[in-house]
Nucleic acid binder design. Structure first.
Lengths: 253, 253
DNA sequence: TTCCTATTGTGTAATGAATACACATTAAGA
DNA sequence: TCTTAATGTGTATTCATTACACAATAGGAA
């Protein structure tokens, strides 16, 4: 009985003070023009940018909240999305202080307290095909567009850290998971795939060894077609074997 | 102005409904008797077990909450602790339903609604030295003790999943991070280290190749002493070079 | 005290993966 | 038609991983 009273007291008197806002934030990577890009939102009436994201609804799985956000911002479905870290520092204000952030977001002064209750954010990253995306702002933002990863400005909250960690995670995964299915068009050339890898890794790779390794994974199918229009020898087109690719994602390579 | 009103409406009317309970749950691994163990808690007046964990306080960093829990349950400080996944399914009840869980925990019926607001849990795992731990229950539990990982019973919530994923993460990390510093005593033998690796990986390793590889990492210092008392040839004692070990944890091996 | 046994200490050969590198081919443009 | 810059392909080298054998020794048995 003693215990039941303790439990009752805890639930009634203590539990509520631990309530937090939980949101998901998305680092959406795209690849275009030989550059790795990330999708950012500009807040209404300001020049401040942040990652897309949103609150998690009460009856919604965490992953579902991330998918919903992704779909709303890009129009895409069935995309590779992966949780990589949860950010729960008390002070998640890096480039701009809490006060400054509130002002920049145009939050009325009397609401600062409520808004800035403890906020925990679960970081996801996605790899999407640049050309398929229709960047769409949400109700708090004016603009949604791609930024080159290397040229991202100082963002609100700790979003620069998020992008950095997402990229680090992606780079590590490159060694034991395939990448490219959602980042490249259906049909692509070996040099295009190589440039994607080089961009993610941030270093040049040997053309011949790269091809050897990619083919050794057994996920690529070479088509009869070649890509014409370039100024030089026409490269073959490839596409991923979707089934094998999915399996490699699950089991590693 | 339109935007400010929208923002005000959102903060005042919508935001509160997204509030969640955020907790941390710990998978604390220990190594003893050639077996990998995990620390579990038994709830008061029941036979039900769960992982240790706790609420994150309003002014507390996420990592700090995990460290606090770890310290309270084990008495240890300065331990390797790592976030590995955040669990945010709406229904995190696996072996026992939500209703059943409430009954088993002895939660008064009128409080079920409040307690079972959306709960997001950030999973951490820790590697600790078995002999140094003083297992300590918390105020809701009667007993805190080690269980062999392979013999863990059906736990409350999704805690079996957590242990499974923690172990999977640990296994993967074994290939690019050193392990052992906090799981073994200060001085240990090569066979002891090997048994630790074999236990985590769940497969036998070649004794000679194992030694070669461990020494190649350059993190071990061989002492003059040997471990006597065993029935056979006395093995050398080793210890980790703490500085190099920490560096390898950061940068990988 | 001596012998036996299980375990430790060490090194080398074989295999496979990653890396370094060279030359022939070809589409577009001059 | 020729030039250019890129693509297609194969081989030698290096490095890491794996497979495997024999000498040394502490404790326990005889």
């Amino acid at each position: 009985m003693e215990y039941k009273n303790e439990l009752r007291r805890f639930i009634q008197e203590e539990l509520h003070q631990y309530l937090s806002h939980v949101s998901v934030d998305l680092t959406i990577f795209g690849f275009h023009d030989g550059q790795l890009k990330v999708l950012l939102l500009r807040w209404k009436g300001s020049d401040d940018w942040s990652l897309p994201g949103g609150r998690i609804h009460r009856d919604e799985n965490l992953d579902a909240a991330a998918y919903r956000s992704l779909q709303e911002r890009t129009g895409l479905r069935e995309i590779y999305l992966q949780q990589f870290h949860t950010f729960g520092e008390v002070e998640r204000y890096k480039n701009f202080s809490r006060q400054e952030t509130a002002v920049r977001l145009g939050i009325p002064a009397d609401l600062h307290g409520e808004l800035f209750r403890r906020d925990v954010s679960v970081g996801y990253f996605a790899l999407v095909e640049f050309a398929e995306v229709t960047p769409t702002p949400d109700r708090f933002t004016d603009e949604c567009r791609w930024w080159e990863v290397a040229g991202v400005p100082p963002l609100l909250f700790d979003h620069n850290d998020m992008i950095r960690l997402a990229l680090k995670t992606l780079r590590q995964q490159l060694s034991y998971q395939p990448v490219g299915y959602n980042l490249l068009p259906e049909k692509f050339t070996m040099p295009e795939l190589q440039r994607l890898y080089e961009t993610i890794l941030g270093k040049p790779l040997d053309r011949r060894n790269f091809q050897k390794q990619m083919l050794a994974y057994g996920l690529l199918e070479r088509l009869e077609e070649r890509k014409t229009g370039g100024a030089h020898k026409a490269p073959f087109l490839y596409r991923f074997d979707r089934e094998k690719y999915g399996k490699a994602l699950e089991e590693g390579i």
